[in-house]
């Protein structure tokens, strides 16, 4: 049961738009759809909108929804690249040390000042990624087998450091735990702007490399015989996706599962070709994160970390797809 990939991409695009509109009408403060539409009109034409409603829509919900879409796309496309380059179905964009590096930075940030959390998270994520790449470098290119092991080792090392700092030093355990499970609560238009630029870097690059990524699936020997310099493509795509993922993590914390599950769902529906997957995986990521975040911010007991919801939604979907594959 496969859809025409092209139609599926258009379907996903419209699904995202519908999802955005539905999310806009859901939240901890109940605002009737009529009021939302009225205030969008009043706001757009500068006719004195209700302050409470327009602030909630334009400064709290909308920037957050946009952020969910952008981050979901970044994690989806980064996850796709990671799985392809490592030829590993368990690949996710945090594999090169991003998440544990970011956790160390965030833990230090929670000790020093909450304002430093994003900056330190980014710096330490890049540090962990940098170490992993340095370890696995040979002849100016990365050896992916080495990189996956280096990434895992570096991750364990940084996790130990993060746990040590959090366990012994950080007083605000709830705050740290929330950050480690991810949350879009701090979303502003400024965040949206910078992450959109990040998306503009990574997305066209992966579209550009879509054929190389396809060829890589056949193995290094095949790729070489077809004249594709896999080493260079691997190094560039992995470095860029680690960098952009670090940026995303520094803003919203460690949101798990999106990068892992989105490419798998995409493959089950449109097949292995990156010609379509580079569009499908990020759009699926955007939709999963958007639905998850809308749930996370609207629970009656107050907001809960979105990472809990993404796993709740993503894991059953993946299990279902695996079950179907087994039957086939």
């Amino acid at each position: 049961m496969r859809f025409s990939p092209f139609i599926f991409i258009i379907f996903l695009f419209f699904l995202t738009i519908v999802n955005v509109l539905v999310s806009l009408s859901i939240g901890p403060v109940h605002i009737p759809v009529k009021e939302i539409l009225k205030n969008i009109y009043l706001y757009a034409f500068n006719k004195g909108p209700n302050w409470t409603i327009s602030t909630i829509i334009f400064y709290i919900r909308l920037p957050r929804i946009v952020l969910a879409v952008i981050i979901g796309m970044i994690l989806g496309v980064s996850g796709l690249v990671t799985q392809t380059v490592f030829k590993n179905p368990l690949g996710d964009p945090y594999l090169t040390g991003v998440s544990s590096g970011a956790a160390v930075g965030a833990a230090i940030g929670f000790l020093v000042s909450p304002f430093l959390v994003p900056v330190l998270a980014f710096v330490f994520a890049m540090l962990a990624v940098g170490i992993s790449f340095l370890i696995s470098r040979s002849d100016g290119e990365v050896n992916t087998e080495m990189l996956i092991l280096a990434g895992v080792s570096v991750s364990f090392l940084f996790s130990a450091v993060a746990s040590y700092i959090i366990y012994l030093k950080v007083a605000n355990l709830r705050g740290v735990l929330f950050w480690l499970l991810g949350g879009l609560y701090g979303a502003t238009w400024t965040d949206d702007f910078w992450l959109f630029i990040a998306l503009l870097v990574i997305f066209p690059l992966m579209v550009y490399f879509r054929r190389e990524l396809d060829i890589m699936l056949m193995g290094d020997e095949q790729a070489k015989s077809l004249g594709v310099s896999t080493g260079r493509v691997k190094t560039v795509t992995l470095l860029v996706s680690s960098l952009i993922t670090s940026l995303a993590v520094s803003v919203v914390g460690i949101i798990g599962f999106i990068g892992l599950v989105s490419p798998h769902i995409g493959r089950k529906i449109v097949g292995e070709s990156h010609r379509f997957l580079v569009f499908v995986a990020p759009l699926i990521g955007a939709n999963i994160l958007l639905v998850s975040d809308t749930i996370a911010r609207s629970t009656p007991q107050g907001e809960i970390p979105v990472g809990i919801i993404t796993s709740f939604i993503g894991a059953p979907v993946l299990i279902y797809l695996l079950y179907r594959r087994r039957k086939m």
Binding site: P28, V29, I60, I304
Partner: peptide
């Protein structure tokens, strides 16, 4: 109106 001893309160509710 929230539940639990130490919940997270949304900016939306603060605005409201």
């Amino acid at each position: 109106n929230l539940s639990g001893p130490y919940p997270v309160i949304s900016m939306e509710q603060v605005v409201q």
